[in-house]
Design a binder for these strands. Structure first.
Length: 564
RNA sequence: CGGGGCGUGGCGCAGCUUGGUAGCGCGCAUCGUUCGGGACGAUGAGGUCGGAGGUUCAAAUCCUCUCGCCCCGACCA
């Protein structure tokens, strides 16, 4: 491909709205262009990268016996009504009516379609197990897109679905995906770590997310260097030293004027925050007030809390709502509370003689003991793991890092097949729901993560497996140097003839421009052809990632470019 | 949805406070010189100042509304 013909342009300046390296470089080097918030075009270079990423994924999916197909982007709303998600999913799903007035949706995912296909096609246990996948555009109207290609609203995802007779079969399919994903990210040049994750609104029994560490990542991971434990902070258990066993002391009210925060309270009473209990008030989707009680030095993990009380969404409670339940914001505790669900963290339940609110402005109570002074409705692990807490597996201190989710695998179970009636007739003569798993990888996000991991101040440095072209020929001297032109054309044409197209910067630009652009674009090898290199015996080959350069005979480079 | 910021030629920006002929750098076009690290000279093209309404003799500039984009938060297979 001649650069003079390529539909692209490089930018000398960083685009004003790009912050992450991947965003800046992909725009600046002419790989992508933004159309709207979270909506991007892939230019020819970007498209080639995406195709190569897809090919890696395709090979690994095919390798585990997953069959490629294609399912629609536009779905009748009725299909989503059958699974119940038409109503349970919020405004992030785009809805519209067709000309006949039928409700339609833009697909966010394809569990329903798979289940619909299964109920059409699968009759007997002999037809299972089965795995299918496709690459398809998804539209999710995220409340906030950000970070260039990292978080977008429209994107291509590889999603696959396993369909098994039972959960034992699901375990096998899940494991196959786990292994395939590990190989995929390895091949893509991504150091992805699998972390246990929340199953969220997808339902199901187990899930892993494949995460790439990145300071700008939106997920928080709890990692243990000692034993390799890893989990999403949303679900990670924290091991904290056991509270001292003490005799319960009598309740004692103490004036704490102005001490409405844990920090103020601890300072005022000259005690450690560990000796206090704090109450957090949330209202769930049904309007129920949830009072969560954790130790003063810890924070509530809303995901854990939501799973504990079977809530889907929370909002912070208003002060009036808290007072209506018999508690006083700033000086609150569940003592004497009513009309609220009291959820107490395990650690608080096991602690003795904590300081907690008196539900009276300016007063706290010493020696509060759960069970004696108030009755928890639920006792559960609801706190967020902290940096330095004990690893739940080995006890060593954990660290907390940000990560970007590049893939996920879910054990779905029978949620969708039951709702849609996708069943098979078993060996036992009975009808059973098919057991599903679902597995996703965002292609564009993977591309962005590869750039995050493979770039320097000069530009991108693609791993060979995903580079849009294996080599970038830079001819120096232009039309004045027929020998240079001839060698460049020979290499370019030979590679093209061998089906291994290379990029050739044949533009009439100064050497500085061409070399700078070559480094920005990031092909694995930059081949410089100039009077100087020819005089030295060939062409100069620079390894983009390392900067290593050497003069190679033209024949050797030609052989390398054309080998299959 | 809450908070903050920004919309001026393809890109990056100044001009706005204090209304009065729209500017700079890069890029682009033509010609000439140059040619291994973002060259130089000359000439030139290109802008409804996001949009609508208002104030005014006069609006990029002041006022109102509106659209879009970015960042933080909330949210999120």
């Amino acid at each position: 491909m001649r650069l003079s013909q390529l539909f692209f342009t490089t930018l000398r300046d960083d685009p004003a709205d790009a912050e992450m390296p991947s965003h800046r470089l992909l725009v600046r080097a002419g790989y992508v262009r933004q159309l709207g918030a979270g909506i991007y075009s892939l230019l020819p270079l970007g498209f080639r990268v995406a195709k190569r990423v897809e090919q890696v994924i395709r090979e690994e999916m095919d390798g585990i016996g997953c069959q490629e197909l294609e399912m629609p982007v536009v779905h009748p709303a009725d299909l989503w009504r059958e699974s119940g998600r038409y109503d349970s999913i919020g405004p992030e799903m785009a809805r519209f009516k067709d000309r006949a007035g039928r409700d339609m949706v833009l697909a966010m995912t394809h569990e329903e379609v798979v289940a619909d296909l299964l109920r059409d096609i699968v009759r007997s246990y002999r037809q299972l197990p089965l795995m299918v996948y496709h690459f398809q555009t998804k539209f999710r109207d995220e409340p906030r897109s950000r970070g260039g290609l990292i978080r977008v609203r429209e994107f291509v995802m590889k999603d696959s679905y396993s369909c098994d007779l039972d959960t034992a079969g699901l375990d096998v399919s899940y494991e196959k995906h786990y292994e395939a994903y590990s190989r995929i990210f390895e091949r893509l040049g991504l150091r992805a770590i699998a972390v246990a994750s929340d199953v969220g609104m997808m339902g199901g029994s187990a899930a892993h997310e494949f995460m790439v560490l990145n300071p700008a990542g939106e997920d928080e991971l709890v990692l243990c260097e000692a034993c390799g434990f890893s989990a999403n902070r949303q679900v990670a258990k924290a091991r904290v030293s056991e509270p001292p066993a003490e005799e319960s002391l009598p309740l004692e009210e103490v004036a704490t004027p102005g001490a409405a925060t844990i920090a103020d309270l601890a300072a005022f009473l000259e005690i450690s925050p560990e000796r206090t209990a704090k109450a957090i008030f949330l209202v769930d989707g049904t309007g129920r007030l949830v009072t969560a009680v954790v130790r003063g030095d810890m924070d509530v993990n809303e995901t854990k809390l939501a799973n504990t009380v079977k809530a889907t969404v929370f909002r912070p409670a208003q002060p009036e709502e808290i007072r209506a339940a018999g508690m006083w914001p700033g000086y609150a505790s569940p003592i004497g509370a009513h009309d609220t669900l009291v959820v107490v963290d395990e650690l608080v339940a096991r602690s003795s003689n904590l300081v907690a609110g008196a539900n009276r402005e300016g007063f706290h109570l010493r020696n509060v003991n759960a069970g004696r002074d108030y009755t928890p409705d639920v006792v559960a692990d609801i706190v967020a793991a902290r940096e330095g807490d004990g690893c739940p597996s080995c006890g060593a201190p954990v660290s907390i890092r940000n990560g970007i989710e590049v893939g996920n695998i879910f054990k779905l179970g029978t949620k969708y097949t039951q709702a849609l009636g996708a069943t098979y007739l078993g060996e036992d003569g009975n009808r059973h729901p098919i057991v599903m798993g679902s597995y996703g990888i965002g292609v564009g996000r993977a591309v962005a993560c590869i750039v995050e991991a493979h770039h320097d101040v000069k530009g991108i440095a693609w791993p060979e497996q995903v580079a849009p072209y294996a080599a970038h020929l830079v001819s120096i001297g232009g039309a004045r140097e027929p020998k240079v032109q001839a060698v460049a054309r020979r290499l370019h044409d030979a590679a093209a003839a061998a089906g291994r197209e290379v990029l050739w910067d044949d533009r009439d630009e100064s050497p500085g421009v061409k070399l700078t652009d070559a480094e920005l674009l990031g092909m694995p090898r930059i081949v410089t052809i100039s009077p100087r290199s020819l005089a030295a015996g060939g062409v100069e080959v620079t390894v983009r990632a390392t900067g290593d350069r050497s003069i190679e005979p033209v024949e050797a480079v030609e052989a390398w470019l054309t080998r299959s």
